[in-house]
Amino acid sequence: MFVAKAYAEETGGHASTEGDAHTAGTEVPHGGAAQASFPPFDSSTFPSQLLWLAITFGLFYLFLQKVVLPRIGAIFETRSDRIAQDLDQAARMRDEADEAIAAYEQELADAKSKANEIGQQARDNAKAEAEAERKAAEAELESKLEGSAAQIEKIKDAAMSEIGTIAEDTASTIIEALTGGKTTKAEIQAAVSRARN
């Protein structure tokens, strides 16, 4: 009775209701010999479920394995290649920048040493000039000094010779005054020169 009712509902479109708890909407194949109470354990639907599962799952598997997964894998590969490439380029650019910096440093060092050289040269020139001037001045002073010394010597010699004469005169005068005697000029000269030496 239930079966017939359920079958009628089935064939009458989607008129099955939730009211008939036991039969409504139940798939009742071929006269409803297998009237299962609980659909997941209704073995009459197993072949259909297994077949369609095999078909859909199998096709899905093939589609994913042949088309989708290689494609996603390729996307990842392209991306990592691209990243590696970009990193390479960045490294190359950094090397170039380093080279430029090195060249700049080199030039700077050259310029510095050149500047130092020029400065040194200027300093040396100035020093040499100053030295020459100083030497000239010293030489002049030296010659003047020598002239003065010679003159002093001359004057001193003159004075010394004067001293001899004065001493002889004084000596002869003293002797005359003391002794009243006369001494020869030669004797006095010899005595004076003896005393002076």
Partner: peptide
């Protein structure tokens, strides 16, 4: 019927 939703319909 809470089981109704599990029925396999041809």
């Amino acid at each position: 019927d809470p089981i109704h939703q599990f029925h396999i319909n041809t």
